[in-house]
Amino acid sequence: MTALTLTFVALILMLAGLVKGVTAMGLPTLGMGLLSLLMPPAEAAAILIAPTLLTNIVQFSTGPRVWPVLRRFWPMGLATFAGTLAGGAWLGGLGSHLAPAVLGGTLFAYGLLGLGRFGFHTPAAREPWLSPLMGLASGLLTGTTGVTVMPAAPYLQSLGLEREDLVQAMGLSFSMGSFGLIAALSTRDAPLTSWHALLVTLAALVPAFAGMEIGRRVRLAISQQAFRNCFFAGLALLGANTLVRALPL
């Protein structure tokens, strides 16, 4: 890579990390969309492996209620992991062309509904069986698109969680999706990384975490309503980005 390309990569990773810090999602989706303008998708995915996984782990583990969130949502996390393996093995993996368009359209529509203040609520009595089901569905989409957001994010938001509980629960779900995606990719013919790519992806942690920390501070400083607006605007923008990239030109 040239110095100019490396500068753009660092800025993209910082921007993607900032979006994740504010909205608790979006690093791999935004990162893939922008990095793919500079390099082949396989190289972009290799760069994003470490930042995606580790920022998800940090998002879950650094919050104030690690054990309560883990006790409540571990079945959903395990189902997400299993679903990701199934999606990668049985549904064509990241080579699927239909899933990104469906995912993008769903994200965009849900983001607009949220910004329009159309509320969704999941009764507590349904959570024990619905959480694993939503995790499995999220995993299937992760295995075919590389993105764990749907339907995990809207489902978790429908539970009426406090802001930091929501952020941690999404971090747990996304972490399990990332582990499952790495496992799924490792079983395929194409290697995940070369030594060169490994060094690049480790270096990518610095701007990604810097952006995430900036975004985290912004999230803690703004109001609940502003956070809600950022949350759903992030969903809509991520959906539009995914949908546009999935459409044939």
Results as ranks from 00 to 15, higher is better:
122 T>K: 03
97 H>I: 14
227 F>M: 02
188 R>D: 14
25 M>S: 04
219 R>V: 05
10 A>F: 14
6 L>W: 15
89 A>G: 04
88 G>L: 11
195 W>R: 12
167 V>T: 11
183 A>S: 09
11 L>D: 09
91 L>D: 04
230 C>M: 15
224 Q>C: 05
125 A>K: 10
206 V>K: 00
195 W>I: 10
144 T>G: 00
12 I>L: 09
145 T>N: 06
168 Q>W: 08
4 L>A: 13
137 A>D: 01
91 L>I: 04
27 L>P: 13
54 L>P: 10
114 G>R: 01
57 I>N: 05
90 W>M: 09
162 E>K: 11
59 Q>D: 01
245 R>A: 11
72 R>E: 11
91 L>A: 03
233 A>P: 10
16 A>C: 05
62 T>F: 13
146 G>P: 07
155 Y>D: 00
149 V>W: 08
50 A>Q: 06
103 L>D: 05
215 G>L: 06
219 R>H: 14
180 G>F: 02
38 L>Q: 02
37 L>R: 10
7 T>M: 13
9 V>L: 06
179 F>H: 04
223 S>V: 09
137 A>M: 07
187 T>N: 13
233 A>N: 07
99 A>F: 14
75 P>E: 07
75 P>I: 06
150 M>G: 01
131 S>A: 15
201 T>C: 08
198 L>C: 07
45 A>E: 14
66 V>Y: 11
175 S>K: 03
85 L>Y: 06
147 V>G: 01
73 F>K: 00
8 F>M: 12
38 L>I: 08
240 A>L: 13
225 Q>N: 13
139 G>W: 02
231 F>K: 00
18 L>Q: 00
46 A>D: 11
184 A>N: 05
122 T>P: 12
81 F>V: 03
20 K>T: 08
129 W>R: 01
104 G>D: 05
118 F>V: 15
127 E>L: 14
40 P>N: 12
183 A>G: 06
105 G>I: 04
50 A>W: 13
18 L>D: 07
35 L>Y: 08
167 V>S: 05
16 A>Q: 03
37 L>W: 14
70 L>S: 03
45 A>S: 14
128 P>C: 05
199 L>T: 15
88 G>P: 12
153 A>R: 04
177 G>C: 07
220 L>T: 09
